[in-house]
């Protein structure tokens, strides 16, 4: 059912290494990776500028903050829930963070503010979902509406500008590579390790796969769901920080369709929306792939009218490839 069970079927050490190769080659991550490389090379052969280092960095950077949010979304979805409010929360946390630093607070505190508040919002959602048993789609749909209205009520949409340079963490470029890319890579690795090698990580899969069974085996499913939403909140907070410092102005609005992008990245990355299956690496690769698709359509000069239709087709192709793979391997969804 999960990729973990596939692993257990290998016994001998030679078999294991062969199995490992097979496993890597047949994983959703590998498919996404191959698609990404194929896409980059194909477009690169049409327009050489696509392969320039600058553009490759742009491809990685474009959706980096969305990838960070998608890591949290993966956990939420694996645990059998969903979060429609990420866009609104990112919007409001970015505005708060910007206002805090404008008010003269040291920049590193302004960095921490969205992350701490994100965790608090996550705790609130988690409490409502896990302990008051309101479906997460209802909680986050309602919350999205509340935050959006509240933000407009308070700010009327005035842009924030004049943040100090040391606050603009997204614009730092250590070794010539923009900071969001480091965030994306490091956080993905940390989460991949947590999900795979810790009891907590496995308990999320268990709760998402079958909450009753998880409870019977001694897992406190409510606490796991609460923790998942808190962690998601932290990731949303980091994404908000990266979003806030990306440009020299912060718009006091909710980023349009952001939740759709994040959910798409998570599910294209191989997270089953039914819970219990999926990995975080796939989500990050999917976020990069979505941005690569977008810029490649510009590069090959496709009519802008048809761009969105092609995005839809390419998403579908990726998903179908994954399903085909699962079916061949006899892995159910």
């Amino acid at each position: 059912m999960t990729s973990v069970t596939v692993n257990q079927s290998n016994n001998g050490s030679t078999k294991r290494s062969a199995g490992l190769v097979r496993k890597i080659v047949s994983s959703q991550e590998f498919i996404l990776f191959v698609s990404l490389i194929a896409l980059i090379l194909t477009v690169g052969s049409i327009n050489g500028n696509y392969l320039r280092p600058n553009n490759l960095i742009s491809i990685l950077q474009g959706n980096a903050f969305a990838a960070v949010a998608a890591l949290g979304m993966c956990l939420v979805i694996i645990s059998g829930n969903i979060d429609i409010s990420v866009g609104s929360v990112v919007g409001v946390l970015a505005v708060i963070s910007g206002n805090v630093v404008i008010a003269g607070v040291p920049f590193w505190i302004a960095w921490l503010v969205p992350i701490v508040l994100g965790a608090l919002v996550g705790a609130l959602i988690g409490f409502l979902v896990a302990y008051l048993r309101i479906p997460s789609i209802v909680v986050t749909l309602g919350l999205a509406s509340i935050i959006k209205g509240g933000l407009i009520l308070v700010t009327s949409g005035r842009e924030i500008s004049g943040m100090p340079a040391e606050f603009m963490i997204s614009q730092f470029r250590p070794l010539g590579i923009p900071m969001p890319i480091y965030f994306m890579i490091v956080l993905t690795i940390i989460m991949a390790i947590i999900m795979r090698y810790t009891a907590f990580g496995r308990s999320i899969y268990a709760v998402g796969g079958n909450a009753d069974a998880a409870r019977l085996s001694g897992i406190n499913d409510r606490r796991v769901v609460l923790q998942v939403f808190i962690i998601n909140g932290i990731f949303v907070g980091i994404a908000a920080l990266l979003f806030a410092t990306q440009l020299q102005i912060i718009r006091a609005t909710v980023p349009a369709n952001f939740e759709l992008l994040v959910i798409t990245a998570a599910v294209v990355g191989g997270v089953s929306i039914l819970g219990g299956v999926g990995t975080v690496v796939g989500a990050t690769l999917a976020a990069i792939l979505l941005n690569a698709i977008n810029s490649s359509l510009v590069f090959v000069g496709i009519s802008p009218y048809w761009m969105r239709a092609f995005q839809g087709i390419l998403i579908l192709v990726t998903v179908l490839a994954d399903l085909l793979r699962r079916r061949r391997q006899g892995i159910g969804l």
Partner: peptide, 23 residues
Amino acid sequence: KLLSGALVACLATVSLGLLPAAA
């Protein structure tokens, strides 16, 4: 699995091949 990997590459190439048609 390799086959399905190749299939994806094919699909991606085919859909990219279609792009100029809509250009």
